[in-house]
Design a protein around this nucleic acid. Sequence first.
DNA 1: TTCTAATTAAGAATCATTACGATTTACATT
DNA 2: AATGTAAATCGTAATGATTCTTAATTAGAA
Lengths: 136, 136
Amino acid sequence: MNLPKAWEILKENGFKETSKRQQILELFSEDDRYLTARDLLDVMQKDYPSMSYDTVYRNLATFVSLGILEETELSGERHFRMQCESDHHHHHFICLDCGKIKEVPLCPMDLLGAALPAYQIANHKFEIYGKCPDCQ
Amino acid sequence: MNLPKAWEILKENGFKETSKRQQILELFSEDDRYLTARDLLDVMQKDYPSMSYDTVYRNLATFVSLGILEETELSGERHFRMQCESDHHHHHFICLDCGKIKEVPLCPMDLLGAALPAYQIANHKFEIYGKCPDCQ
DNA sequence: TTCTAATTAAGAATCATTACGATTTACATT
DNA sequence: AATGTAAATCGTAATGATTCTTAATTAGAA
């Protein structure tokens, strides 16, 4: 997901263009990795000393609900990153050191179609954790 | 995992047999599903009105570290259940209504052996969520 | 420019989880 | 059975992430 596309989605849904939203989205655009609400706040308070948690969380929730960001849970904290643009469904390798991700094209659900008859599948989670080549 | 096996592991590691541990383990033995710390506390305070969070969390941590319980994160809360006895690696379908689980024999990592060269894989998570046949 | 609804700031409240000092308990030893 | 001691527990306070509340500010339309 790139910045213009994100703004297009926001405008379509009647959300206003504010400086806080701009900076949040810019931070996610620059860094291709998962960030926590605290990560964001720490960086943003340099430019906006009055930035509050509420603003961060409210906008993160908005962005996730619009499909601009995706989130996952790592060691008890919510982490957010830009929604991938890939048009095909995929999963992620997540580096536990730097937080960068690598797309994994395989989806285990492809092989599970008929393995769970009578079970109504709502969603699934498949993530691989470890160290990326840069962090070893 | 059954009760005698759990106690065997605890004794081997020098842990004492207390009434609180007994009740916690009994609750997990009866119910083949994920429970939160609060779930446990609510039930246990009927028998032990003085049961404290500290006791619950401390024992849960002990049991997980000894491989008696396993845990996962569901909607922001830690959930615990008895470690499966299956001798082969597997994953879980988790019912979002009743919390019961069903073992899924397939592991996507089997197919990913060489797909991530140079990536040092530490662990992985694969879970399927939905409604079990009983809850539809 | 003015108006209005959306957005934000500031801080309090909430929820899950962890920590701490004092007390109690399991159990090995006498 | 009584005793000693480390482990376990209790009651409560602290912490950290997240959400809520109210008043003030701001973006974008009229």
